[in-house]
Amino acid sequence: MTNANESPLISVRNLEKHFGDMKVLKGITVDINKGDVVCVIGPSGSGKSTFLRCLNRLDEPTGGEIIFDGVNILDPATDIDLHRQKMGMVFQQFNLFPHMSIMKNLTIAPMTLQKKSKEEAEGYAYELLERVGLKNRALDYPLQLSGGQQQRIAIVRALCMKPEVMLFDEPTSALDPEMVGEVLEVMKELADEHMTMVVVTHEMGFAREVASRVMFLDGGDFLEENEPKEFFANPQNDRLKEFLGKVL
């Protein structure tokens, strides 16, 4: 999937994030290529969410560069709102807008930010809804849906902007166990369509099966990365071995 001739979609250089005195990210350098499905794993509090949220500047990095589409998005002169339109994000808590119908949730951003017509935005939303099996819920409100359904809608909401990359922060961690599968299934389909994805997850099965690369974050940096088979079968780093010993 990685095309050596193409420059990376996201190129992270010496990314640092401090919260006061606490250094959470200590100079991370990593490339994310088009079509990559990167799974980020690591112990709780190691900074996985912080890393992901720095990629679209929901958390403001304290140092380094993030080159996305050839632009350093950490440059104060870049219009981050414009770049965020190309980076979909899915949260642990879904964060659908409870005062809007599902359809409104899906169309408000494309209509407002991309000036899509109502017909066009709704047409595309229906198409995606159909694919996640929720077409009949378009006129319902978010809190009438189950957690798994809400998270699938949240994924569709991000997709409606036709993003170049999707960022997932533990998308199944807030779900009842019986609903995890339906969300992972949608993510797997996305990966099959070569969507570029960065997924923070505790679902080792998903990482093993779907990821093109798995990366282990601990102590403020990625300590190991590999394609999933090797990563899980043959870990090198001691901290990773210990971590896998606990979670597998």
Partner: peptide
């Protein structure tokens, strides 16, 4: 209003004001 609402809005590309 939970923080996540602001974050979801911003992550879609809406400005703070929007």
């Amino acid at each position: 209003i939970p923080r996540g609402q602001m974050e979801a809005g911003r992550s879609l590309g809406f400005s703070y004001f929007q």
